[in-house]
Amino acid sequence: MDNKDKKNNRRNFLRNGLTMGGSMLAMGMGPAIAKDSSGEGKSSGEKIKVLTTDGKVIEVDKPKDDCKIDPCEPPKGNAARQGIPGRSFVMVIDLAKCKNARKCIEGCQKGHNLSPDQEWLNVYLMKDHDDAEPYWFPRQCFHCDIPPCVKVCPVGATYKRQDNIVLVDSNRCIGCKFCMAACPYSVRIFNWEKPPESDVPPEDYSPEASVPAQIGTVSKCDFCPDRSREGKLPYCASGCPMGAIYFGDKNEDAVSNGTETLRFRQLIKDRVGYRYLDELGTEPNVYYLPPVERMFDYKSGLNDLPEEKQEVYKDIIDGENNKNN
């Protein structure tokens, strides 16, 4: 009895170590496509082999990723209006690293079950003035501290939480779109038609996870608090191959892009972090590091784009070409 308890405790201890080892491996590798069939049927995926103290090999359940924030389950309904205690989520985007790989968008769309033309975050090609070099500018919801969108909501379907996050409750949204008109950063999108089928049943909907979406309601970037509860970075931050998107908790003074963790205040100080259209007084929680000492020419971001998409940037590209001639 006593021994058994001890053993269970030990198994629990194993978990923490495991997740660390596992996550280290998971990084940097391509997707698993090749498959060896000789191991077919033996692998459970859920189990891990353990060499015990007495030299026996046993198989135990591989524990799921541990919760970092209690409770791990994203809250439903009005419970989601409360922020996660002690947290103050921020994002830092290093414009010097962005080359419009658009993996952030793909990751976000996949994670939130969005259709391919629904973009919670978008990468814009910006050019500040005639002599400026264009740069790629990823834009998600800024989760403003004084959110103009929340001010105008007639039914409180979108709300500001104490942990900085601005969420939309699809179960309450009446679809008036006033928040979309009020947002100066054009981050909100509307479900004009029936959203894609989701595996998540409607009764499991949490505003933190934002799936399943509902027709006739507004949706937007939610800063993935459901993933934060599991200690995971938002889809865009973990999806960026360049590590351009850092996410973290301002109260912890740390932001991470998955490979590198930096002190938030020091980073903003050293790299002169700024906020987009800060003068509007919305107090955004997304910071940008200016695109200085860039790792890529902005043109490299155009290479993989379809022609019609390149056409969108025509004005800027033409302007650049004329400048060089």
């Binding site: 001010k151 105008v152 909501c153 007639p154 039914v155 409180g156 379907a157 309450r172 949204c173 009446i174 679809g175 008036c176 779109k177 006033f178 509307f190 479900n191 509902q214 027709i215 006739g216 309601t217 507004v218």
Partner: peptide
């Protein structure tokens, strides 16, 4: 007619926020 969810029109009274110009 601008509302995406006419079926939730009563929310305007159930959850009405006085801060909203729509209210």
């Amino acid at each position: 007619f601008c509302l995406g969810r006419l079926d939730r029109i009563h929310y305007l009274f159930m959850y009405g926020r006085i801060q909203s110009p729509i209210t």
